[in-house]
């Protein structure tokens, strides 16, 4: 068991290195690394400034440091004259020490920005997953209990429909119904205490959670139907146990495995969805910060956000993988 965990952790570290390497590499190969560090002044031609042919933009403002000084310092600090793999090494070292650079917009450290935004996005994910699982389990049990009957058939159509609704359309429609039309919820994000925060998360949570609930429900229903054909279910029924008891005590638990696996994978969809949902419901979370940074070309925030999001996703799947093996000893024996 210990060897198994060690091997998994080694694989996790390798994937994380590759993922951060890809993000960093893309930033430096597809974009101009100097621009990604200092912003628009990267276009100043320092040779011409030194020769006195053109004016230095910020050097002209009172007390401002010359652009070329800033550029030279950035080159030194970020080792821009070194090869890409070496720069990645330096950058990784900074990240491990918690330094993600500073935002172009307000010079705030990226770490602080992410530290402030991330908890809200995580809370949104948690609410969404709670809604999804809370809906999916009873729904799947009810559908599997009377499989191929009208309720089950209607559920099939309903789940396919839910999966087909784009998160932004579902979000806008929920926003219209509950905020504009019936005015049950406020359009503002209320951050005063945990209760009002949770209340603000209901609609966004539903937007992310409903499609996920549909996916979970389909999987769980299929697994429930398979388990219902097992001998031990027949045995339990023959002993005269009630249907509810058999369903929840004997059938549900061994049917939960696929759900657990997909739980991790669906996080990716939710992270993507949160970019959109935070926009619709004005939640000042990481997704919104990322989109705004993209629009403003605020590369330090984009890179930091992408690294955090990808790392989070990889770690969640790693945890699910581990959890899965703990629940089901068969996987451990094979793996």
């Amino acid at each position: 068991m210990v060897g198994f965990v060690v091997r998994r952790v080694a694989a996790l570290v390798a994937v994380l290195l590759a993922v951060t390497g890809l993000a960093f590499g893309a930033m430096n190969v597809l974009g101009d690394p100097l621009f990604n560090v200092v912003g628009f002044i990267a276009s100043v031609d320092c040779d011409a400034v030194a020769a006195g042919e053109v004016d230095d933009i910020s050097g002209q403002t009172a007390g401002g440091r010359g652009d070329c000084e800033v550029i030279a310092e950035a080159r030194r600090e970020h080792h821009l004259d070194r090869a890409l793999p070496i720069r990645y090494g330096y950058w990784l070292g900074d990240i491990v020490r918690g330094d993600l650079g500073t935002s172009f917009k307000n010079e705030m450290p990226v770490r602080e920005v992410i530290g402030e935004k991330l908890p809200k996005s995580v809370l949104l994910m948690v609410v969404a997953q709670v809604i999804a699982v809370g809906l999916a389990v009873p729904w799947a049990v009810a559908a599997a209990y009377r499989a191929h009957r009208p309720f089950d058939r209607a559920s099939t159509v309903g789940t396919f429909g839910l999966v087909a609704i784009p998160s932004f359309a579902l979000g806008v429609i929920l926003f219209y119904l509950f905020v504009v039309r019936w005015q049950i919820f406020s359009s503002r994000y209320d951050d005063t205490d945990l209760w009002s925060r949770l209340r603000s998360m209901v609609l966004p949570g539903l937007t992310l959670g409903l499609p996920a609930a549909a996916v979970y429900m389909r999987l769980l229903r299929t697994d429930l139907l398979t388990t219902l054909q097992e001998d031990f279910v027949l045995m339990a029924r023959a002993k005269g146990m009630s249907d509810q008891w058999v369903m929840f005590r004997h059938v549900l638990r061994p049917s939960l495995f696929s759900l657990v696996t997909v739980f991790g994978l669906s996080t990716a969809g939710m992270i993507g969805g949160s970019l959109v949902v935070e926009q619709i419901f004005s939640i000042p979370g990481l997704g919104r910060a990322l989109v705004e940074a993209v629009i403003r070309d605020d590369f330090p925030i984009v890179l930091g956000g992408v690294v955090v999001v990808a790392t989070g996703f990889v770690v969640v799947n790693f945890a699910v993988d581990l959890l899965y093996t703990l629940i089901d000893p068969r996987v451990r024996a094979d793996g």
């Binding site: 893309a26 992270i271 984009v302």
Partner: peptide, 16 residues
């Protein structure tokens, strides 16, 4: 390992 929308967003931004 990257969520699809995040990856797409980043690459589209970088290409400008």
């Amino acid at each position: 390992a990257f969520p699809g929308l995040v990856l797409l967003l980043t690459v589209v931004t970088l290409l400008g």
